[in-house]
Structures are given as C-alpha cells and as structure tokens.
Computed example of a mutant assay.
Amino acid sequence: MTRTARLTILLIAVLLLGTAGAAAVLRAADRSGRRDQEQAGGPPVRTGTVSLRPPPGGRQLLVRNLAWGPHRDEIATVAADRPNGPRTVSGVKCLRFHAAAGTGICLQAEHQALQDTYRAVVLDAHLRERHRFPAAGIPTRARVSPSGHLVAWTVFVSGDSYAGTKFSTRTAIVDTRTWAIDDNLESFAVTKDGRPYRASDINIWGVTFADDTRFYATLATGGQTYLVQGDVAARSLTTLHRNVECPSLSPDGTRLAYKKRVPHASPDAPWRLYVLDLRSMKETRTAERRNIDDQALWSDNSTLVYSLPGDYGSDLWTVPADGSGTARRMMVSALAPAYPR
C-alpha cells in the first residue's frame, strides 16, 4: 500500500470518528436537555408545527409553556385528552394568549435597556403575525371572539394586582377585519342601575365575547365591581350584577364563570370561583375553595379551567361548573389555556 493510500485511509477514519463523536455528543445533549426539562417542571418539550386549527377528529389544548428550559413562555400544544403528555412548542412567546376560529391574540414584552414596553400581536392560524398594536402597560387578560373577528386585551397602566384599590387598567377591542381599534373601553357610554353614569374612577377589564357585537366585562367604580354587558356597535356598557370580576362566558352562552370577593377573606386573597346563570342571575359557588386570580376558561359547557400558583409559576386546574365534585390539577407549568374550535 502506498503512502498516499495510507494517508487517505487515515483521513477517512478520522472524519468518521469525528462525525460519530459529534453525533454522540448531540444525542447526549438532547437526552440531557429532556431530562433537565422533565426534572425542572414539566413533561418532554419538542419543537414542531403548531396550528390554531383543531386537528381532524380531535381536540387540542394550547397553553403558554412555563416549564423551565429554552422554550419557556412559548405557545405549546398538547392533545386535550392528554394534557400532561409531550408538548409541541411553536417558537412564539407570549405573556398572555387566547385563540378562536384560527385567530390568536398574543401579548408580548419588548425588553428595553431602561424599561420594558409591551405590544399586542394578532396571529393567524399558523401563528404568523397579522398586525400589532402598542399596549399601554403590563399584560393581564386576553380574549378572542368565537368567530375570530374581534380580539380584546387588558393591561395594567398602574399597579400590578387587582387585589388592592390602587391600580388602573386599559382595555382595548380590535376588529381583525378592518383593524379598527377601540383602545380604551372607558370611553363607552355607561348605564348603571338603569341610569346614565359618569365617573372619573371607572376601570374596565376582563372582556369575554358572546358574538361580534355583544360582550361582557368587569366595570369598577366607587369601590364596587359590576358585571357589564357591552355593545361594540353602540359603544355602550350596561351593569347587570354586582361583585363580578373577570367573567368568562360558557360556550352555550347561558352562564358566566367569574371570581367573586367573599366576606372575611384575606385582602390579599379575596376571590373565590363562582358561576352566574344569566337567565335567573343565580350564583353557584364551585368546589374550588382557594383564592382564584384568573379569568377562568370553559373547556366545555360543564367544566372550568383556571390557573393557580405552582412550583414553576403556574399550574392549570379544573373543576365542575355546577358546584359538584372537587378541584384537580390538570396540567403543570402552564398558563393562558385555549381550546381552538
């Protein structure tokens, strides 16, 4: 064998060994990353295609992934009947999120050297940006109408909690067909207890849509909170019931889940989860007895999903809406659920 041939064989061997070694390192890193992910606070997380359209013959659950790792805060999807199964992450990060009918609303932070700013981004069914709007403060609530034609979001413009009284919110609604925006629902005409009402201390938050005209929200004034029914076309708000915060309309449109301040509770943990029948205005207390600071979501017409503090920020819990049963943890390390329909 010539010297040239021996050198060629040696070079090929070195290249093969290097390739094999690099592959082994990558496989080990991948396994280590998955182990770290599982130990850190959640099931395996994998990258892939995420859509806001439900898969054929099944249901999916979309969440903000809070499991520690490089994909924390990304929108992820799991099978709705296996919420603690592997998560497929999208690469799109949101602080608050909701989706319906192929439209998503994603509230994001823009990290600046001196102070973070925020934006509301409307997404298409493939999580591609359609339009963006500046947001006036820290994101706290987001909703999409059943048709996907309207999106709403609420931010804190001062303060960072609903528990006290020293906070101010800003709530906006956008029509995704025209990009027309009502950037502050406090400009809507208010009817309170059957009479026109004006006050400088009005705050509005927590929109939930019935259709492309009618919605519900919370209005606060004079130290009280009220459920209001809103009309986008008429730009009006009408009070319906006292002591209702962060309402969430059931899919059949007959009931609202909400958080209610209860007597003798701690000022820092004042809310319990209730359901209001819109026909009778009868209130039902759910079996969840802990403090709820979230806008609950209906997974169907009988079950509520909501967040509670967890080891990695937030876990999702579920409870029957009729007051029966018990609360149970549904999913760890997750926030901002949505069931695309």
Score class of each variant (00 low, 15 high):
residue 83 P to W: 08
residue 84 N to G: 13
residue 42 G to I: 01
residue 89 V to T: 15
residue 89 V to E: 01
residue 53 R to Y: 11
residue 79 A to Y: 03
residue 86 P to Q: 07
residue 48 G to T: 09
residue 46 R to V: 15
residue 77 T to D: 00
residue 76 A to P: 04
residue 62 L to M: 04
residue 88 T to V: 15
residue 43 P to W: 08
residue 76 A to H: 03
residue 41 G to Q: 08
residue 61 L to A: 04
residue 81 D to Y: 08
residue 54 P to E: 11
residue 89 V to C: 06
residue 72 R to A: 14
residue 81 D to N: 13
residue 63 V to W: 01
residue 85 G to Q: 09
residue 44 P to D: 06
residue 84 N to L: 10
residue 49 T to G: 10
residue 79 A to E: 11
residue 43 P to K: 01
residue 67 A to K: 06
residue 74 E to W: 01
residue 43 P to A: 14
residue 75 I to K: 08
residue 46 R to G: 12
residue 49 T to H: 13
residue 76 A to E: 01
residue 51 S to V: 07
residue 51 S to H: 09
residue 58 G to H: 11
residue 52 L to V: 09
residue 62 L to R: 00
residue 54 P to Y: 08
residue 75 I to H: 09
residue 47 T to Q: 12
residue 57 G to A: 00
residue 49 T to N: 11
residue 40 A to M: 01
residue 65 N to F: 04
residue 44 P to H: 08
residue 68 W to D: 15
residue 42 G to W: 00
residue 79 A to C: 00
residue 52 L to A: 05
residue 89 V to K: 00
residue 83 P to Q: 10
residue 65 N to R: 05
residue 74 E to F: 06
residue 44 P to V: 07
residue 80 A to G: 02
residue 89 V to N: 01
residue 67 A to Q: 10
residue 85 G to H: 12
residue 54 P to A: 06
residue 62 L to E: 00
residue 39 Q to S: 12
residue 64 R to L: 04
residue 60 Q to F: 09
residue 78 V to L: 05
residue 54 P to L: 05
residue 85 G to D: 11
residue 49 T to K: 11
residue 69 G to C: 10
